[in-house]
Structure formats: structure tokens, C-alpha cells
Design a protein around this nucleic acid. Structure first.
Lengths: 225, 225
DNA sequence: AGCCTGTGTTAAATAGTGTTAAACCCCCAA
DNA sequence: TTGGGGGTTTAACACTATTTAACACAGGCT
């Protein structure tokens, strides 16, 4: 449940935005000018700051500069009618991370806030995923296909193709979409290559008769488990 | 000197943006559609992707989705005339980090690119002095690899290569990028050398069967932990 | 100087991957 | 029913990667 510090001197707009954020599950702290915003920032340690620029007491840019000094990482977003390029540039130079011009849609605001919050948590370790395909087990990242004790190492292309088939299992995986994704384009020879790879996958998966890769003529393939 | 992958199907606009970025010291890779962009992404490992949405062959959204699957952290920015809120929302949902509506000012574009680049590298900067690789522990600066009380001293090349693999763990480390960074150029014999070093690292890391350095033919290697 | 050791390069044999070709199959429409 | 256009399969091929070994070279040591 992320906390948003919203600094907006016009109460009507502040209310609308504040409500809208509240509905989506954000905790919202409101402030009416930069000075108050700075205090609220120190007091509540929000996850993101969303600020108007033109405000009495202390403007948004000045406040952002001060906040940035205290916290070099917190996302700061400006929300303003000043849409001159020079203003936008200034906003980013002071350490802002986004700049949304009024009038804006609430959906866009929210999606941008989420994008900024998303960019923070930096954990790169992806857990190994192991999926079942019939009696087989498949590890897409290690490109391994296992059955009973035995395991086979697939090539990268084979693994990618099987992964896509699995993701769309029991649905059609389009020929041309795989071709453009994996081969870069949908040309005659690449099409033949794809056929060859399908044959190979069928052979790998032969031990479990339940599993089938069936062809939908002219459209694509479907992995049935 | 960050590398920007620019995907724009309209040559005139592509040229203007490309030049403008070049002047500010960015290295720019150009592509004319999503399919080509995806290939360039894999080949050049750019620091940021800037893409048009409406393009022939493969549109920008589809491409972004695919890139995001391969690299969960690289900043992706859309650059498009489609300014409906729904499009903006879609762009962010597919893993985009910013969305700039055409027509835009070049200064704004550049400042936004910088903001995105700024928000990333904090983590990639400096490796802690001691990192875990499966059951191993690796000290990149001392070039030491440890397992259960034992430790092996790696050569400088071995350690640098392992460090790069680790930094990009679970992602592809491009052949040509390592070669140019570590060997100075991507030539036939250097390529063989790299292969030899990969073999050596595989042997060092053999004790933990979970760890794998897998090859993506023609593209590079991926360290799986 | 001569010797040893560690490091990176070259070479060569082997293995693996993806592409092309060709023969065949089978569905479907004329 | 027949012919054509996918689709399937096998095989051959070109190319890339893997592995082992031999080698060259530099630094440190005696």
C-alpha cells in the first residue's frame, strides 16, 4: 500500500486526484504548498511525491530541490499547466522523474505513478520456474526437459518455441507471430525452419502419448496436454 | 556514453531525433520496425529503448512486450501520435516507462531520456565486494571464487568475464559487447578466446549443477543461477 | 642468464545448432 | 478425382560452439 504525497494548491483538483488515488488503494497525504509539502515529506516519508509547480509560499520546483537533497531516490512527479519546454526541462533538471501537463486524465496519472513506483524495487533474481507438460517437466530458463530421471538439454530455439507453446497451451499459437518473434520475420525459409523445430519438439515429447502438438492449417499450432 | 535504440519507421523523423541524440553524446542504433528493433536490441544491448508505436512488421507495443520479457529493467519509452488515454495506459502496462506524445520538443525528449537513464544505474554501478553465485561466493575485485572453505584465484580476464555474466545474470550477455569491451574488438580469434574462457568458467562452476552458462547461438551467453 | 609459473592465444578435433533441400503426405477445392 | 499447397519428415549441410592441448610470452625467482 504505497503512500503518495500530493501537493496541490487548488482544493477542488486536489480533492479529485486525492479521492481517485484513494480508490485505487493508495494512501494519500495532502499539502497545499511547497513549505507544507516539505514538512509532510519529512513527517510521513511517502513513497512518491506528486506536486503542482505554481503554488503560494514555496513553489513546486523549489520544494523538489529540497526534497531531492534529503532523498536522492524518491520519485517526484510534477503536475502542472506550465507546459513550456523550458519548464519541463527545468523540472527534470531539479531531479523530477516525470512531468504531466494539465489537463491530464486520471488514468494516465495513475499509470504514471505506478510506473515510477515500479521502477524502484530492484531485485534481479528470478526464481527458477518449473512447469509440468504431461509427464514431462520443463525448465524454460535452463532449457531442460525432464522425464522420469532423465533429462534432455534443449537448444535455445527449441526451448523458446516450447515455452511459447506452453504459454498458449490448448490454444492456437500463431505461425506468423512465432516467426516474427523468434526468427525476426515471416518468410518462406523461416517457415520451413519452424516446421523442422516442431518436428523435433514432437519427437522430444513422444514418450507421453497424451501430449500433442497439432497443426491448424495456415494458422499455427496448438499444444494439447 | 549511453546507447539509445531508436525504432522509428518514418525516416525523416528518425534522422532528426537520431542526429539530435548524437549531438548530445548518445550512441544511437536505428531500426525501422519492431522486428528489426528486437534484433538490434539483442545484438547491441542498448541502455534505453525509444520506440514509435505504429510500425509495419511488428508494432512498438508488441516489441516492447518481447523486450521486457528478455530484460525486465531496461527503460522503454514510447514516442507516438496516439494520445488516447487508453493507448498511454496500454503502453505503461506492457512495461513502458514513459510515453511522449507527438509532436514533442527534442529538448523534452532528451531530458526524459536522461531521467530514465538516471533512475536505473544506481544498482548496476558497483558490485558489492562479495556476491553469491549459487553455492559459490565470488569476490570480483580480488578475483576470488570460493566454495565451502576452498578458494580459487581467477585470472583477470576470467574474473571480468564472470563479473559481466553475473551483472547480466538471467539475461543475455552479448558476444560482441563482451568482445569489444574486454578484448577490444570482435574478431575471429578473439571469439575463439572467449569460447575458451567460457569453458574455463564452466569448469570452475561445475560443482553446483544449478549454475549454468548457456549459449544463445550467434547472440551471446546467459548465466543462470 | 636460465627456469618456473601463470596467463592468454592459436590450433585442431569434435559436437551441436539452425537452414536448406527433397521426398512424401494429406487435406481441400476445383 | 485430381492437383496444388501447406505440412511433415529425414537428411545433408554450413556454420558456430566446445573442448583439449600445444604454444608463446611475460614476470618473478634462483
Amino acid at each position: 500500500m504505497p503512500t503518495v504525497l500530493l501537493i496541490e494548491d487548488e482544493p477542488a483538483l486536489g480533492m479529485i486526484v486525492s479521492d481517485s488515488l484513494g480508490v485505487r488503494g493508495f494512501k494519500v497525504i495532502n499539502a497545499l504548498n511547497g513549505a507544507e509539502g516539505l514538512n509532510m515529506f519529512r513527517e510521513h516519508q511517502p513513497d512518491i511525491v506528486v506536486a503542482d509547480v505554481m503554488m503560494p509560499e514555496m513553489d513546486g520546483f523549489t520544494m523538489a530541490e529540497l526534497i531531492r537533497k534529503e532523498n536522492p531516490h524518491i520519485p517526484i512527479m510534477f503536475l502542472t499547466a506550465r507546459s513550456q519546454t523550458a519548464d519541463v526541462v527545468r523540472g527534470f533538471e531539479l531531479g523530477g522523474n516525470d512531468y504531466l501537463k494539465k489537463p491530464f486524465s486520471l488514468d494516465e496519472l495513475i499509470v504514471r505513478i505506478n510506473a515510477l513506483l515500479r521502477s524502484k524495487p530492484e531485485v534481479q533474481n528470478e526464481l527458477p520456474t518449473l512447469v509440468n507438460i504431461g509427464r514431462y517437466r520443463f525448465d524454460p530458463s535452463r532449457q531442460k526437459l525432464m522425464l522420469d530421471g532423465q533429462e534432455v538439454l534443449l537448444s535455445h530455439r527449441e526451448a523458446e518455441l516450447l515455452r511459447r507453446l506452453y504459454e498458449q497451451r490448448n490454444q492456437v499459437l500463431g505461425r506468423s507471430s512465432v516467426l516474427t518473434e523468434l526468427w525476426g520475420d515471416d518468410s518462406f525459409f523461416n517457415g520451413r525452419s519452424l516446421d523442422v523445430f516442431i518436428t523435433r519438439l514432437r519427437r522430444y515429447l513422444r514418450e507421453d502419448a497424451k501430449i500433442q502438438i497439432i497443426n491448424i492449417r495456415g494458422i499455427g499450432y496448438k499444444l494439447i496436454i
